[in-house]
């Protein structure tokens, strides 16, 4: 952000999106470019790729707002930017696509949700995402936060425990319960686990 520039509020920017005014993109870029570049750089380290990722982000946001009306624009943008960055990361690292920080958390989910002999290749990630989203929305706030800290942010349980001022074993226990609840939920919804 350059000193002296007058930035629009998030609400004003969202209003521009709703009015389909392309100024919305320019204002978003002015206000959040550095931040979004930083988010993207967590996954892709090439400046050119990051800049392209930013364009993808703006395009995606343009498609999503409206109808979406995010209550926290910055975080909303961060989610989209992260997703775009991950897509590029996957393109760039085909064959070795999973960031190391996510490997262990996802193994935990995998262990509970999938039997190795089952055939799940045909399942759609989108379908699973919709079900998990519904499951998460039904959880108490702190459980949802815990789940996403582990499986979206990829934080080690030790870190979560320290942040939440709880013991590691308590956090592990809660996560185990959440995984088990998720399994029950998916089973109930007819998802093959």
């Amino acid at each position: 952000m350059k000193s002296g520039s007058i930035l629009k509020s998030d609400q004003e920017i969202i209003a521009l999106f709703f009015a389909r005014d392309e100024q919305a993109i320019r204002e978003t870029d002015l206000k959040y470019r550095s931040y979004l570049l930083s988010v993207a750089k967590n996954f892709i380290h090439d400046s050119e790729d990051a800049a392209e990722c930013l364009n993808d982000t703006y395009f995606d946001v343009w498609q999503k707002i409206p109808p979406a009306r995010p209550s926290h624009l910055k975080s909303f943008l961060a989610v989209i930017a992260r997703r775009c960055a991950i897509d590029r990361f996957k393109e760039k690292t085909a064959g070795k696509r999973l960031p190391p920080s996510m490997a262990v958390p996802l193994s935990e989910l995998e262990e509970v949700l999938f039997h190795p002999t089952e055939q799940h290749e045909l399942l759609e990630a989108k379908e699973l995402a919709t079900l998990i989203s519904r499951f998460l929305k039904g959880l108490p706030e702190h459980s949802r936060y815990l789940f996403l800290s582990r499986y979206y942010d990829g934080k080690p349980t030790k870190t979560i425990a320290r942040e939440e001022k709880r013991s590691v074993s308590t956090v592990n226990k809660e996560l185990k319960k959440l995984r088990s609840d998720l399994k029950d939920y998916l089973t109930k919804e007819g998802y093959p686990v």
Partner: peptide
């Protein structure tokens, strides 16, 4: 399977993730 899970997690509801972030 991890890829599927990862894709699913990354495709969670935008609002849900934004609220978390």
């Amino acid at each position: 399977m991890k890829d599927l899970l990862w894709n699913a997690i990354e495709s969670l509801d935008d609002d849900l993730l934004a609220e978390h972030v």
